[in-house]
């Protein structure tokens, strides 16, 4: 339940009860004893009740808001920037700078960007459809090895590659 709702409920109830109590007049037997005592007991009494509630609620929200445990846990983790190796492309190089905060990658910046103008020159290397039949007739020559989506050790046993390896 939300703190605002609980505090609202407690305060409104307390206000209603205290209001009614003071309007109705306290029990005569006690009232006679001392007016000062009556107010003395009621006010701190209600004060304790409300401050007790707000106090516990306050400490609860502090615990939730300040990330004390997480900052302790991540204290040993590194922060900073790190420059990566250069990846060369046909028209330029790409190099990245990695920013880490408490062991987590927070940012990656490109230091060297590929010259994208080279793209229009090379656009002729465009993959276009080819008929299966054209390839099938062309490919039937023997092969030395086989390339396919990665097979597992178990998958290997039934793969074409296994057949080739055995044949050799």
């Amino acid at each position: 339940m939300r703190t605002r709702a609980v505090l609202g409920g407690v305060f409104s109830s307390a206000a209603i009860l205290i209001g009614a109590w003071s309007l109705s007049g306290a029990p005569k037997a006690v009232h006679v004893a001392a007016a000062a005592t009556t107010t003395g007991t009621t006010t701190p009494g209600s004060g304790t009740a409300s401050s007790g509630t707000s106090g516990s609620a306050g400490s609860g929200s502090t615990g939730g808001a300040s990330p004390a445990p997480s900052s302790t846990a991540s204290a040993g983790k590194a922060s900073g920037t790190y420059t990566g190796s250069v990846v060369s492309t046909q028209y330029g190089n790409v190099q990245v700078q990695v920013t880490l905060s408490q062991g987590k990658i927070t940012d990656v910046t490109a230091l060297q960007l590929t010259d994208r103008e080279g793209r229009s020159v090379q656009i002729s290397n465009y993959a276009a459809p080819i008929l299966r039949q054209e390839v099938l007739t062309a490919q039937s020559a023997s092969v030395d090895t086989v390339s396919g989506a990665t097979y597992t050790s178990e998958g290997y046993l039934t793969s074409l590659q296994a057949a080739l390896d055995q044949a050799g």
Partner: peptide, 10 residues
């Protein structure tokens, strides 16, 4: 020479 596996019939 490398053979490319047919994904429809491995």
């Amino acid at each position: 020479k490398v053979g490319i596996v047919d994904p429809e019939d491995r």
